[in-house]
């Protein structure tokens, strides 16, 4: 189960006319168009800095940014190399992910299977879900201090709603026939939950985890901007204070690349773990 919709998978009327007009050039693949777009943006950026249209303090050249990236990897910035900053950030995000899976899946099951669970947990989740995590970050800092715990707590809170909601949706979306089949084969309530409801909710849970990772990453960087002594968000914030714009831009690129990578890995795990999700 994926939440994305791709217009390209829809039948396109224009393509059917193609056979009758063989002379028309083949349309460019989307990937090529995207590559050209990125190329144009970088070229425009290069030109703007080469002709000093914008002060280099605000917009360093692409070359400078690549150099900054290289220096970040080799010597680092604010007492840590890029790997150490990224490592600190990843440690937080995966620590938070494990915690939110351990809390979120049982909570989602409780909401999906019991009226009592839904009554107790629904208002909490619904309160938390629309809140921007940075709105409660100051409170969390007051409560648990400025150390790792506050950042992990904030990330956990930002990840929990999507994991809880996708788990409860998965649990509630179980096929009635699948449940009835198990009952007529002799399954107890507990066995129905373990053998049927949970496995059938796994695709939905994994989708929730993937969305949670995205939300968590956003929150993490923001939290590090506000309160941290290491991490990729902290690195950008420090660089900005000294107007080291090339490091700021290099950091932003790294953040984007990691986000893309996390999304990719999560999709691969989904494909590996639940190959049957496409065949229900």
């Amino acid at each position: 189960m994926t939440l994305s919709t791709d217009i390209d998978t829809l039948p396109q009327v224009a393509e059917t006319g193609e056979a009758e007009r063989p002379l028309k050039a083949r349309p460019l693949p989307v990937a090529i168009i995207s590559a050209i777009t990125i190329g144009v943006i970088i070229a425009a950026w290069g030109l703007a800095s080469a002709y000093a249209l914008v002060s280099p303090v605000f917009l360093p050249s692409p070359r400078q940014v690549v150099l900054a990236l290289y220096n970040l990897v080799v010597t680092g910035f604010v007492d840590a190399t890029l790997a150490e900053h990224v490592g600190a950030s990843l440690y937080r995000i995966f620590g938070a992910l494990i915690a939110s899976i351990l809390i979120g899946i049982p909570a989602g099951i409780a909401i999906g299977t019991s009226r009592l669970g839904r009554g107790i947990l629904d208002p909490i989740v619904e309160f938390l879900r629309p809140l921007p995590p940075l709105a409660y970050l100051p409170l969390i800092i007051i409560w648990v201090g400025i150390g790792e715990a506050s950042k992990i707590t904030v990330i956990v809170l930002s990840m929990l709603p999507s994991i809880i909601l996708s788990t409860s949706a998965g649990v509630r979306g179980v096929s009635k026939d699948h449940v009835n089949a198990a009952r007529s084969l002799g399954a107890s309530r507990r066995q129905v939950l373990r053998e049927v409801v949970l496995p059938s909710a796994v695709p939905s849970i994994l989708t929730g985890v993937r969305i949670a990772l995205g939300a968590g990453w956003t929150t993490l960087v923001a939290a590090e901007l506000v309160a941290a002594t290491s991490g990729i968000g902290f690195m950008i914030q420090s660089a900005a204070q000294f107007l080291v714009t090339d490091i700021v831009i290099a950091g932003i690129i790294v953040i984007a690349l990691i986000a893309i990578l996390l999304e990719y890995v999560a999709r691969q795990i989904e494909r590996r773990l639940v190959p049957w999700a496409a065949h229900r």
């Binding site: 026939d177 009835n180 007529s184 496995p199 059938s200 796994v202 049957w276 065949h279 229900r280």
Partner: peptide, 14 residues
């Protein structure tokens, strides 16, 4: 003791 066979099989894809 009363096992059901369903029209759309209700087999478990996992």
């Amino acid at each position: 003791d009363r096992a059901v066979v369903f029209q759309d099989d209700a087999l478990y894809p996992w």
